[in-house]
Simulated assay, not measured.
Amino acid sequence: MTISRVLVTGAAGRIGRAVLARLAEQGVAAHALVLDDPGDLAADRVFTGSAADPARVRTALDGVDGVIHLAAIPTPERNEALEVFTANVSATFAVLEEAGRAGIRRAVIASSYAATGLPFARTLLHPAYVPIDPAMPTEIEDPYALSKQTDELTAAMMAHRHGMTVVALRYPFVGGFDERLPGWAAKIAERPELGARDLWSYLETGDAARAAHLALGAPVSGAPVFYVAAPRTVVPYSTAELLDRFHPGVPRRADLPGRTVPIDLRPAREVLGFTAAYELDLGD
Rank of each mutant, 00 (worst) to 15 (best):
L146A: 15
G258Q: 12
L203K: 10
L41S: 03
R58D: 04
L214F: 12
A240N: 09
L280G: 13
T2Q: 12
T48I: 11
A189F: 12
L70M: 03
P119M: 10
N79I: 00
E193Y: 11
R56P: 01
I140W: 05
I188D: 14
D178V: 13
V234P: 07
L243Y: 09
R22P: 01
R106F: 00
T260C: 06
V34G: 02
P134T: 01
R253S: 04
N88C: 05
P231Q: 02
D142V: 05
R232G: 10
A128D: 14
R259D: 07
A99D: 00
R122T: 12
A156R: 14
V234G: 02
G217D: 07
L181Q: 06
A114H: 11
T205F: 09
A52E: 11
R5A: 03
D207F: 11
A212H: 01
R245F: 07
G175R: 06
G195Y: 08
F226D: 10
A229R: 07
L23S: 06
P38S: 13
G13F: 05
A268N: 11
V271L: 13
Y202D: 12
F47P: 08
D151K: 01
V84C: 10
S90P: 02
E270Q: 10
R259G: 04
A159W: 06
A211Q: 03
E141F: 00
A254K: 05
E270T: 15
R269E: 15
P172K: 13
A186C: 09
V57L: 04
T75A: 11
E241Y: 01
T2C: 04
V228T: 02
G175V: 12
F47L: 10
N79C: 08
A215S: 03
D142P: 08
V225R: 02
A268G: 08
G63I: 00
R5I: 00
